[in-house]
């Protein structure tokens, strides 16, 4: 018995001391250390994502089908109200695919940001009692958003194939790039807002309102061509530049360009010939720039999160 105790003591004597909490400093080294710590908790991250998904629909008989029913309902509403009643579908071929593509990528972004924002408060019990790299909570929210996205994405792909519009072209390369933009910006904002929300609870309500506005600030239920026309009519050309300064708008456009083949070719609706949809000039460059800025922004947000997380346990 006491041999075991002695062995333990001898082993401990060889170990280096470690600080109980890493004090914050802005260096890149501490950023790398945070990333390594998070990577060390991959398993827990996976379990937390599963917990979130399982717990959400645990006692409902339709289960996770509900995560599909919502976007499909939205699709029907927008298809009927905006496409048919307001006539947007007259200028947009395959309006249903167009809208569902936009809803799918937007849903990913909005779920990451709103879910991320409340993730720290929502896990107050763990934050207060267990020492963990706290970034895993916004990341777990991202994981569950990603799962819902993948389900929707599969539905979208199946729908395009069934409708004979399978997105088989080089434009498909825009899809992973767009998802990457959404993930990077979503995670960055999720980290930042979850930390700020601990100190200022208004943030979660503000985010809800902001998401409502931002939904309409990207070409999801109306086409980019409408924006171009409106800007041309008003004569204010910088409006389109402002519109395209939104990383999610770029991601939505890229995703649509990849998934919505009808947008890139000439089509006929009700006997009228519609030219291919206009795409913003330099979309490739814009995607690259948004990815670059996004990575820098994400690093900054992680640093801010690290700075703020020191007092989470007592502020919650």
């Amino acid at each position: 018995m006491s041999n075991e105790a002695q062995r333990r003591a001898d082993r401990l004597r060889e170990l280096p001391f470690e600080r109980a909490t890493a004090s914050f400093n802005g260096s890149f080294g501490s950023f790398v250390r945070s990333i390594r710590e998070i990577a060390g908790q991959r398993e827990l991250l996976g379990l937390l994502v599963r917990r979130e998904l399982k717990a959400r629909y645990k006692d409902s008989s339709l289960g996770f089908l509900w995560s599909l029913i919502r976007p499909l309902t939205m699709l029907v509403i927008y298809y009927v109200a905006i496409g048919q009643f307001l006539g947007a579908a007259r200028g947009v071929p395959d309006f249903a695919i167009f809208v569902f593509a936009g809803l799918t990528i937007w849903g990913l972004y909005s779920e990451i940001v709103t879910g991320g924002t409340t993730s720290i408060i929502g896990n107050a019990g763990l934050i207060k009692k267990v020492s963990l790299p706290r970034e895993i909570f916004p990341l777990a929210a991202t994981g569950s958003a990603l799962f819902n996205f993948i389900v929707q994405f599969i539905v979208l792909i199946v729908a395009t194939i069934v409708l004979g519009q399978a997105p088989l072209s080089w434009n498909l390369l825009y899809v992973p790039a767009s998802i990457a933009i959404v993930l990077i910006w979503g995670v960055a904002l999720g980290l930042l807002l979850s930390a700020v929300n601990v100190y200022l609870r208004d943030v979660q309500y503000l985010v809800e309102v902001a998401m409502l506005i931002l939904f309409w600030a990207s070409p999801i239920v109306y086409a980019w061509s409408f924006v171009v026309d409106a800007a041309a009519r008003s004569g204010i050309t910088w409006l389109t530049d402002l519109y395209l300064a939104n990383p999610v708008t770029i991601a939505v456009l890229g995703f649509q360009k990849g998934m919505w083949v009808a947008g890139s070719s000439e089509s006929v609706i009700d006997g009228q010939t519609i030219p291919p949809q206009p795409w913003p000039a330099d979309l490739d460059l814009r995607i690259a720039v948004m990815l670059g800025i996004g990575i820098v922004f994400a690093i900054i947000c992680q640093r801010v999160f690290q700075k703020l997380q020191g007092n989470f346990a007592q502020e919650i």
């Binding site: 109980a20 009692k129 020492s131």
Partner: peptide
């Protein structure tokens, strides 16, 4: 000591695997 709260001054160092039973069933 458990690394859940940061100090304002000073520091805590430890070695070996730490388990904190601050609340049973947290999580």
């Amino acid at each position: 000591i458990g690394g859940i709260i940061q100090t304002d001054t000073g520091f805590v160092e430890r070695r070996g695997r730490v388990a904190a039973l601050l609340e049973l069933g947290a999580g």
